[in-house]
C-alpha cells in the first residue's frame, strides 16, 4: 500500500477553533440487579474449584471478573484531549508501555492512540460520561466490558508459565513492575501487565478465555496451580 501523500491535511485541531462534540450513541451497558451476568470463565466454575484447590502451588490464578473495561482512543499530541483526560482521571495518560493505577482504576497504554481503562463495572458508564462531557474534537470511547476479562496470576513460578506462553521477555530487567505490553500469548493474544514482583494481569478476549484457561492449567501443572475464587 501506500505512502501518506497528503500529511498536511492531518493537522490536529487548531488552537482557538471550536472543536465539535462528536455525535455518538452512548449507552449504559450495565443491567440492573435482576439479570445475571456471566464472566467469560463462568462455565469453568473457578469458585468451586478454588474451594477444593490445594493451597500450595507456585502459581495462583484468579479471574477478576465482570470489571468495567473502556477503550479510550485519542491523539496524545492533541493538548485539549490530553488535558481533558488528565482532568477527569486525575493523572496524565501513561506513556508507551506504562500502566497508571489510581485507586480502583488502572490505565494501560496499548498503542500510541489507545489506552485501556479498567475499573469496577459500576463506574464505567459514569467515567465514560465524565470523559465525554469534558472532551471535544476527535477521540473515541468504547465500552468493551463484556468482551474481555482479567486473569490475575501470582506466585513465584508465574514468570516460568509466562515464558512458556509468550515470546515477550518477562525478565525483571526488561519487564519491571508498572509495565504493560500487548503480545502473543500461546496462540492467542493478551495485554500483559506486571503489577508486582510476582503478580501479573492478563487481559484476554472473551471468546479465547476458555482456550487460555486450558493453556494456563497445562503450563502451570508442573509448579502446582492454585485457584482463587
Amino acid at each position: 500500500m501506500s505512502d501518506v501523500t497528503n500529511v498536511e491535511a492531518s493537522s490536529p485541531v487548531q488552537a482557538g477553533e471550536q472543536a465539535a462534540k462528536p455525535q455518538v450513541a452512548v449507552m449504559n451497558l450495565l443491567a440492573g440487579e435482576g439479570p445475571r451476568a456471566d464472566s467469560p470463565l463462568a462455565h469453568a466454575e473457578l469458585g468451586a474449584i478454588a474451594k477444593q484447590s490445594d493451597a500450595k502451588g507456585g502459581v495462583c490464578l484468579q479471574e477478576l471478573k465482570l470489571l468495567g473495561h473502556l477503550v479510550l482512543r485519542g491523539d496524545p499530541n492533541n493538548q485539549s484531549f490530553v488535558a481533558g483526560v488528565t482532568k477527569v482521571l486525575g493523572v496524565a495518560l501513561p506513556a508507551a508501555l506504562k500502566t497508571e493505577v489510581i485507586g480502583e482504576l488502572s490505565v494501560h497504554w496499548v498503542s500510541p492512540d489507545e489506552w485501556l481503562l479498567i475499573m469496577p463495572a459500576k463506574q464505567a458508564f459514569q467515567l465514560e460520561r465524565e470523559l465525554r462531557a469534558e472532551l471535544t474534537g476527535h477521540y473515541a470511547i468504547v465500552n468493551v466490558s463484556g468482551g474481555q476479562t482479567v486473569l490475575r496470576l501470582t506466585g513465584p513460578d508465574v514468570d516460568k508459565v509466562l515464558c512458556k506462553s509468550t515470546p515477550y521477555d518477562v525478565h525483571e530487567r526488561n519487564f519491571p513492575v508498572g509495565k504493560v505490553v500487548t503480545s502473543v500469548f500461546a496462540k492467542s493474544q493478551a495485554v500483559i501487565s506486571r503489577s508486582g514482583e510476582e503478580a501479573w494481569d492478563l487481559v484476554v478476549r472473551r471468546s479465547f478465555a476458555d482456550y487460555l484457561w486450558l493453556w494456563l492449567q497445562d503450563a502451570s501443572a508442573e509448579y502446582g496451580l492454585q485457584i482463587k475464587g
Partner: peptide, 23 residues
C-alpha cells in the same frame, strides 16, 4: 486500519473491535 493509516490518515475515525463485546 491499513487504509486509514497509510492512505487516509487525515480522516478522523477510530476503529475498535467489539466482536466479543456483544452476544
Amino acid at each position: 486500519e491499513l487504509y486509514h493509516q497509510t492512505e487516509w490518515p487525515e480522516m478522523e475515525v477510530y476503529f475498535n473491535t467489539v466482536t466479543d463485546q456483544w452476544s
